[in-house]
């Protein structure tokens, strides 16, 4: 068992085999795992919002899909990953509360997932698996020795992507 590195809300961490990266209790936020299975290095991001250009507080680039993912990718490449081997697995983007007249605020999970897809497309990184949407929270863990992305929930069981 390697080190377990925690990734907080609006944060990202990178690392290499045999460590694991974990982020607890994602709701409408999205967890994005990037990994190179040959170099066995990767990163996990926990983004809160889709787009830094729509925000007035952009000091922390890890908060937004559009600013966090390029940063994290560069750091993973510096750890020895090859760009063409990188893949992504994503999870989260739930809608925790359902109101009759759901406003945009309530649908932020959906918008986060869509933004993550767009940014990854731009970076030319393929999403090989995902577990998004729903109305429940998730804890996500990326194992850097094998690339397994484990998703834990309270009532919907546990799965490995």
């Amino acid at each position: 068992m390697g080190e377990l590195i925690k990734v907080g809300m609006a944060d990202y961490k990178t690392g290499s085999h045999p460590a694991s990266l974990i982020s607890y209790g994602l709701g409408s936020c999205v967890g994005i795992a990037l990994y190179d299975s040959v170099a066995k290095v990767g990163g996990l991001a926990h983004i809160m919002l889709p787009d830094s250009t729509q925000s007035r507080a952009t000091e922390n680039p890890a908060k937004f899909a559009d600013t966090c993912l390029p940063l994290m990718m560069d750091e993973i490449l510096k750890l020895g990953a090859a760009k063409n081997r990188l893949w992504a697995k994503i999870a989260g983007g739930a809608q925790m509360f359902t109101f009759a007249n759901a406003t945009d605020i309530m649908r932020v999970g959906e918008r986060n997932v869509e933004a993550v897809r767009q940014v990854l497309r731009k970076l030319d990184i393929k999403i090989i698996n995902e577990d998004t949407g729903g109305n429940y929270g998730r804890t996500v863990e990326l194992k850097l020795d094998c690339g397994i992305f484990r998703i834990k929930t309270i009532d919907k069981g546990e799965k490995e992507l």
Binding site: G25, L26, G27
Partner: peptide, 21 residues
């Protein structure tokens, strides 16, 4: 909602996150 505290709180925190840290 009955779920993880982080997931539930994220609903409010995300809204605040657009304007500050």
């Amino acid at each position: 909602a009955m779920d993880m505290a982080g997931a539930i709180l994220s609903v409010i925190l995300i809204q605040l996150g657009a304007l500050g840290d």
